[in-house]
Write a protein that binds this DNA or RNA. Sequence first.
DNA 1: TATCTGACGATAG
DNA 2: CCTATCGCCAGAT
Length: 91
Amino acid sequence: MTFEEQVAAVLGRLRPGEVVTYGEVAAEAGRPGAARAVGRILATSNAGYPWWRVVAANGRLVPGHEVEHARRLRAEGVTVVGRKVARMGRQ
DNA sequence: TATCTGACGATAG
DNA sequence: CCTATCGCCAGAT
């Protein structure tokens, strides 16, 4: 089981409207502190992961994709203020 | 085995 | 609110 597969499993458990941080995903995937590695996976892999449900620890949206990111989150009922999500976790 | 590369995280100014 | 640093990690070279 590679780290990426673990991450894929975690992302697969997310439900619409649920927002998590890179750090949380890393921890859930069994690798606390590997948030950066999670970001690298979402940035390079084209496996079709629900990347829009993952945000930075402070709620920031993906750098360079703020518009598309905000659009997708709002489509699931997530409140987005400026370039960040108002609150995290299940709604 | 050594380096480099990010969609990170926390902290300081 | 913004930039700069530093520590961290898995995967690609």
